[in-house]
Design a protein around this nucleic acid. Structure first.
Length: 327
DNA sequence: CTTATTTGACCTTA
DNA sequence: TAAGGTCAAATAAG
């Protein structure tokens, strides 16, 4: 079995254990040892999973990588972002499934775009495209495109026929410096203002340069092949946003629905997103000068942090998203 | 000053 | 020819 799959099962088990622990919290309240033991078990599961994920970085093939990339990003950032949104908004039910509502990989594209305009531009027929849907933050500034691990520079925006919202075009900030061909297009869904459809085109090469910014390593492994993890949520949450309860949301709910403070007065709302992009526009405000590195912890880290953070509400987020505050 | 965003014009493709 | 994708000048922002 694929190490990643193993890691996934571990994560799942960790989630379940956490949930069980949640249910038994009352009973264990006066048994610190048992509590501690349970915590350790959970932590170990996530730690092991993390280990596996870290070790599972085979050099990916070409076509598979796009999928892997998306999945990885999805898991790392989509879920984390959702979780963070939940924390900040106090919301307890989320729809992770929505994030993978429609995801596809294709290697020929119709919007194959134009080739060479003023200079030689390689044909993009063979460019890989990967489309996915990611939820916008439900509160605060919902204008900015979803954050992923890379720094993007906006180079165009266009009204699209038949679409209510314009499509924004981004390319990798390091396109010039590292000749990185990665691009992405971001557009809101017609029928769901709170969901972006993000199309990734091309792969990042900037991380391969030794001098290049040390973004997270190229996601390589299909993190979400286990149907239990993602697909179990039948997706398609109701129109607007609040929606079915994802497993993660369930087991995290305890943490997230904590007291009043957890709505995070400070970082709240717009700020979180501001690091990613300012309203209406860019995708990379946080990295205006392009060199700062934002490294998101893996999910395991997040869970780890959460479980270690002693239900201390927003503080844990400082650990998880340290960069969020430096705004 | 440097870097990012905006936006109309231009180019390619279907 | 229309639509979509990209360029690049103007502008904004740190």
């Amino acid at each position: 079995m694929d190490p990643v799959q193993l890691a996934l099962s571990l994560i799942l088990r960790g989630c379940r254990s956490a949930k069980e622990l949640e249910a038994r919290l009352g009973d264990l309240a006066n048994q610190p040892e048992a509590l501690s033991k349970s915590c350790d078990e959970i932590i170990n599961m996530f730690a092991s999973a993390k280990e596996m994920l870290n070790n599972a970085h085979p050099h990916q093939g070409s076509s598979q990588q796009q999928t892997d990339t998306s999945l990885h990003e999805l898991l790392n950032y989509g879920v984390i972002r959702q979780a963070m949104d939940m924390i900040q908004s106090g919301r307890t039910s989320i729809s992770i499934g929505a994030e993978i509502q429609a995801m596809e990989v294709s290697d020929s594209g119709k919007g194959s775009s134009s080739s060479s305009q003023r200079s030689h531009r390689s044909r993009k027929h063979d460019q890989e495209k990967c489309r996915m849907r990611v939820p916008a933050p439900q509160m605060g500034n919902t204008d900015f495109p979803p954050e992923d691990n890379y720094t993007w520079r906006k180079y165009g925006q266009k009204e699209i026929l038949g679409s209510r919202y314009p499509r924004a075009y981004y390319r990798c900030t390091h396109q010039k410096m590292y000749n990185c061909p990665a691009k992405k297009q971001v557009q809101r869904l017609d029928n769901d203002f709170y969901t972006f459809e993000v199309t990734y085109i091309g792969q990042h090469t900037c991380h391969m340069s030794s001098t290049a910014p040390s973004i997270a390593p190229p996601p390589s492994t299909p993190l979400i092949q286990d149907p239990m993890v993602m697909v179990s949520q039948p997706t398609l949450p109701p129109p607007t946003s609040s929606s079915s309860v994802a497993p993660l949301g369930t087991w995290l709910s305890m943490e997230f629905s904590l007291g009043p403070g957890s709505s995070s007065g400070g970082i709240g709302g717009g700020d979180a997103g501001a690091s990613s992009a300012a309203g209406g526009g860019g995708a990379s405000m946080g990295s205006r000068y392009g060199r700062d590195v934002v490294e998101f912890p893996a999910v395991a880290d997040m869970a780890d942090a959460m479980f270690n953070s002693g239900s201390s509400s927003s503080n844990s987020m400082d650990f998880i998203f340290p960069h969020m505050e430096d705004k």
